[in-house]
Design a protein around this nucleic acid. Structure first.
Lengths: 128, 128
DNA sequence: GCAAAAATTGACTTTCACGTAAAAGTAAAT
DNA sequence: ATTTACTTTTACGTGAAAGTCAATTTTTGC
């Protein structure tokens, strides 16, 4: 069996264009197999794409995403590299925590906006 | 009294360039006063900049930020506009919630990365 | 086995959010 | 009065992440 996905199956599933997936391949994020020139995506590729898009949603750059993926494939063996990586992880973590605070604050603001809207609607509604 | 801020004071406080603040003015996000040609920022401007940067951190575009700011200055008076706005708010909210999930998942992943690093370090440390 | 649909490559274009350089005006301090 | 530190406008440049277009293959359905 060993299911394969075509490129358009995946573009439909994830709502991205073929150009995007090819771009990710060019950037070395994914390595779909080939039958001739045609790309064949395996479940592993599909999973990777999921992770890529998640990274994208929270604002990681392509190279940041690439870096994370690299770690999984081949964790650095050298001491210095490892320490550097851990530093980066720590920075990223702080960054993400800040983002979460930002999101919470913005969500609260959106609540305000909504309430203001409802009030307005009520006013208008009464006047009609 | 009525404190004014110079542009560089604010760039230092927020870690952005003058170009950035001027750009935000060009984009209609802020409207600092002028003494001659020189910009004078009031506390209100400073506060707005804070909000803009928060929006930026979570990936809002300039026009999305502009939209939110607009609502505060001048909530739409027309019914249709209001409903449209509320729809947008609802979409944004969903978007932000998704982002928060993404962040949580990524934080968990970073924990894994870190642990893998620590394990590696221990291995190497022993071998030395 | 042949047409239609789908996939490929390559080059060019676009959008966003500023960066950068140039040339000149201001303002306070020495 | 001159230096020093900012500030201004104008205008072109840039990098990331794709979008678009065109000209070929390749695959699939019948």
């Amino acid at each position: 069996m060993n299911k394969y996905y075509t490129i358009t199956e995946l573009t439909r599933e994830f709502g991205v264009s073929t150009r995007t997936l090819r771009f990710y391949e060019d950037e070395g994020l994914i390595h779909p197999e080939r039958r001739g020139r045609t790309r064949l995506f395996r479940p592993a590729d599909r999973h990777l794409i999921k992770e890529i898009l998640r990274g994208r949603r929270i604002g990681f750059t392509i190279s940041e995403i690439r870096e994370i993926i690299q770690v999984y494939k081949d964790p650095p063996g050298e001491m210095g590299q490892l320490q550097l990586l851990m530093q980066k992880v720590s920075v990223k973590r702080d960054d993400l925590r800040q983002k979460r605070r930002d999101i919470d604050e913005t969500l609260a603001e959106l609540d305000n906006v909504e309430e203001a809207c409802l009030t307005r609607l009520a006013e208008i509604g009464v006047g009609t």
